[in-house]
């Protein structure tokens, strides 16, 4: 039996449930190899001012990330106000020709936790302008509900602070978000290794976004493959339905028929 298990966000279907970031790689070549091994179909990119002091070096990110192969999802990382995020989103849409956007409005440089009011305000404006807004948010069920109510076609609660590699810090909140959400829930930020990704998927998350967890591994391409397998394992375990937890042992072997 071939089960059709696709991730549907807005009007698009994806077969991979792993979204991969393109930041922090030592070289574009290493990044490209990791993207290939991850099996991802969606990759995130950032928008930054061009450096006025150096003419184009000839190498640019899009030479290594083919927009025909991947959905290139621009982010508004580094924006601290709704206004900055909105302007960055509009520039990204012009640069890429896609309304898809990973919205980030950051509230604090040390934690990189999102600013809730700014995120909601920017989402409201951008959704009206036709953007497909995927918002990075806290693992806050109330906020997730508000973002969904505005029309976000997915919500992206963090597992832990961006780049921290701490894994899912509050599985209970993620579970509550999952219980109430009618849109896909993609865990974004803070996953450090394949088991973290598997935990997210076992909870029932619909996908995971990983950047530093792959880019900062000693061998990014190998970790990318591990993350892919972690997503697949976690997803399969979720669909299979895990056994209930119990406090005491329950023998696996028959308790009758023992020799005396």
């Amino acid at each position: 039996m071939v089960e059709r298990d696709v991730l549907k966000i807005a009007d698009r279907e994806f077969h991979s449930r792993l979204i991969v970031g393109t930041g922090k790689y030592a070289t574009f070549e290493l990044m490209r190899e990791a993207l290939e091994k991850s099996g991802t179909e969606v990759v995130t990119v950032a928008v930054r001012r061009v450096n006025l002091e150096e003419a184009g070096t000839g190498k640019c990110l899009l030479d290594f990330v083919d927009p025909k192969r991947y959905l290139v999802l621009p982010n508004t990382a580094g924006c601290y106000t709704a206004d900055e995020a909105i302007r960055t989103a509009r520039l990204a849409r012009e640069a890429l020709g896609t309304p898809w956007l990973k919205l980030e409005v950051i509230g604090d440089p040390k934690t990189l936790f999102p600013d809730n009011e700014g995120t909601l305000e920017a989402a409201r404006v951008l959704l009206k302008e036709g953007f497909v807004v995927l918002p990075y948010c806290l693992d806050d069920p109330i906020l997730a509900r508000k973002l969904e109510a505005l029309g976000c076609p997915a919500v992206m609660p963090l597992a832990a602070p961006i780049g921290s590699g701490l894994g899912i810090r509050n599985p209970h909140n993620i579970s509550i978000i999952l219980e109430q959400a009618k849109v896909p829930v993609i865990v974004d930020a803070g996953v450090g290794t394949a088991s973290d990704v598997a935990v997210a998927m076992e909870l029932g998350c619909h996908g995971v976004l990983v950047n530093t967890g792959i880019a900062a591994a000693k061998e990014p391409a190998r970790m990318a493959e591990a993350m892919k397998l972690g997503v697949q394992a976690g997803r399969a375990a979720f669909l299979a339905g895990r056994m209930p937890r119990r406090r005491y042992a329950s023998a696996s072997s028959p308790i009758e028929g023992l020799i005396e």
Binding site: Y25, R49, N75, L96
Partner: peptide, 10 residues
């Protein structure tokens, strides 16, 4: 004026 390009990011 702001002139921007795409760079690596998460």
């Amino acid at each position: 004026l702001e002139v921007v390009q795409l760079v690596g990011g998460g």
